[in-house]
Design a protein around this nucleic acid. Structure first.
Lengths: 349, 349
DNA sequence: GTGAAAGCGCTAACAT
DNA sequence: ATGTTAGCGCTTTCAC
């Protein structure tokens, strides 16, 4: 592998001149010199050793993205959009699966940090930031995506989230407006601020209509161990079956995300219940598939592209110190997309 | 940030001794010295600068994974399993979206290489390897996942794929056995070896039964530009509508992957056609959702976990030079999972 | 058993 | 306008 010295020799200049060419410091040399260097680079097929560059400069145009699981299309889509936004700004993205495990999240963050990545986007995961506070002290810049937590102020440099509470409230209002009075909530373990917010929102919407959310209708995957890979469809399927088997079952269910909703479709069918005839379902996220499944899913849309761009932009601004006092915390508006999985409850329920 | 020198000073030893401790070269020092060093490390909260380590040693326990799009759950699941397998072997994974664009694929590979990543898994993408051949000359080790191509011998160090041709043949045989005679193939642009193999397999199965695959029933997203983000469900939905609107429509359709199949569900419903009553659908991949949608999807399963482990293992073996002449090219067996989306054709078709 | 010293490839003062 | 020089933090001979 050709090094900067080889290029320098070939062009008959010094290494620093080559470095200057490489780093766009024109004006510090004659056009003719520049041309010679460029030609030498071309001929030798030289590429700078990025490792050495980073090592030396301490900076590297890479950010990290920690997601619960790329196997969920919502996070896959986020990764996709984050990558696109970062690429546009000349940054690369390292994607890591933390599996909703604080330990693993901290481990990845540490790895990233000691690989020279200073900025990391943490997406929905544990409720606190305690486990990464020490890394912040060591220079890690953290952006929170759809996540709030205790001690966040000291740890988080910028954050972007959808208003989860509002989103779920919209879902709840829609259902209440349709005439539902027994509404369930279907989720995996509620260990993230976004999940907690969604539950709260539903409760608030019901309260406003003088209804109480029956704790027996809040299913949170309790008692299921090692759900790592079955997160989503499988849990949704199991959960709704339990919910519908209660003495006084719900006539509508809000799910914590679209994957649970799709699982709920399957679970309801397992019991011979029709959607929305026997039970209405509202999802959250609005993944591509939500419009495709049958019946098309009523769901709360997160403006994903906007959120991805905002978090990447904010993070990079902080990293580059060009923050200029812009507000670093944005809350995106969710939107209820009414499709075919919701309807008034059956008479007599 | 504490450096190795700080530790050395604190422990009253030299930097090289600390390095030896760090790199597990015990036996080269007294237990007592080792203990002192360890304690100093602990006290200072020292972590080696991974960048400097890599820079110096030229080695870094990181592999790259280039996928068409993490937004497709199949690739998301692959990324997940690859990461798991790599982690178990002490490696990290950088995931990149190439968007099925050879240019972008080459760009990422180059970035990876100059960041010190020597081993990269390329998953299904362009038909040839020409665009990365020059990188191989510069030291890149490439593993091909579900991908064959021209010039592969010289470029690819190891490969893992499912037998796509066989998989599609199983699908075709199943359909033929059910009595179908007009079978369509629904795909996006066929620019990958895996897609080409699937089409061939279907054709072969039909040929064996004395049937010809009508070119008019092979839909490949022709004429659609900028389909980047709509890959999958959207194309499937559009495609099947066109297929079912032909003069002599198919009674069964094999789709290139499960996302297309789910799109096909929606498209068929758009036209009021029922599955499998009016048209049978077979998918490919067997993503989690395949068992969840309604009707549950008959599909060709790829043994994903096995394939992920095999490619990571083979790649790392090559990287570490412990290949020991083991066969570096494995072909995994696909399996037809018959569920509810296939049935005999209607009488009179 | 432990330390000294030489770099890895690049950048950035500082000279010229 | 260009070259010289001194490291960045670590690993790794090679002495002692």
């Amino acid at each position: 592998m050709a090094s900067i010295l080889d290029v320098a020799r070939a062009a008959g200049v010094s290494a620093s001149t080559v470095s200057n060419v490489l780093n766009g410091r024109h004006g510090r040399m004659q056009a003719e010199t520049r041309a010679r260097v460029l030609q030498a680079i071309e001929e030798l097929g030289y590429t700078p050793n990025a490792l050495a560059q980073q090592f030396k400069s301490g900076r590297n145009r890479t950010i990290g993205l920690i997601v619960p699981s790329v196997a969920n299309p919502f996070w896959g889509a986020l990764a996709h959009k984050v990558e696109r936004a970062a690429t546009a700004l000349g940054y690369k993205v390292l994607i890591c699966n933390a599996e909703r495990d604080p330990q693993q999240e901290a481990r990845y963050a540490e790895t990233l940090l000691s690989s020279g990545v200073r900025g990391v986007i943490f997406s929905s995961s544990p409720l606190t930031f305690d486990h990464i506070a020490h890394l912040v002290r060591r220079g890690l810049v953290v952006a929170a995506f759809d996540r709030r937590g205790q001690g966040a102020e000291e740890v988080v440099a910028c954050s972007v989230s959808v208003d989860n509470e509002l989103g779920a409230r919209l879902a709840g209002q829609h259902l209440v407006g349709l005439g539902h009075r027994r509404i369930g909530f279907l989720s995996g373990p509620i260990r993230t601020s976004s999940r907690a917010g969604r539950l709260d929102g539903l409760r608030a919407a019901m309260a406003k209509a003088g209804l109480a959310l029956d704790p027996a209708l809040v299913w949170q995957g309790a008692g299921i161990g090692g759900y790592g890979d079955t997160e989503g469809p499988e849990l949704g399927r199991i959960g709704i079956r339990e919910l519908l088997s209660r003495d006084d079952p719900p006539t509508a269910v809000v799910t914590v995300n679209d994957m649970y909703a799709m699982g709920a479709y399957a679970g309801a069918r397992d019991l011979g219940a029709s959607i929305p005839g026997d039970v209405s379902i509202v999802g959250f996220d609005d993944v591509d598939l939500a419009a495709v499944v049958h019946p098309a899913l009523t769901t709360v849309r997160q403006p994903l592209a906007v959120m991805a761009e905002a978090s990447v932009g904010a993070l990079i601004r902080v990293l580059e110190g060009t923050d200029a006092g812009q507000e670093a915390h944005v809350s995106a508006m969710p939107q209820l997309i009414v499709r075919a999985s919701t309807a008034p409850p059956k008479q007599g329920s």
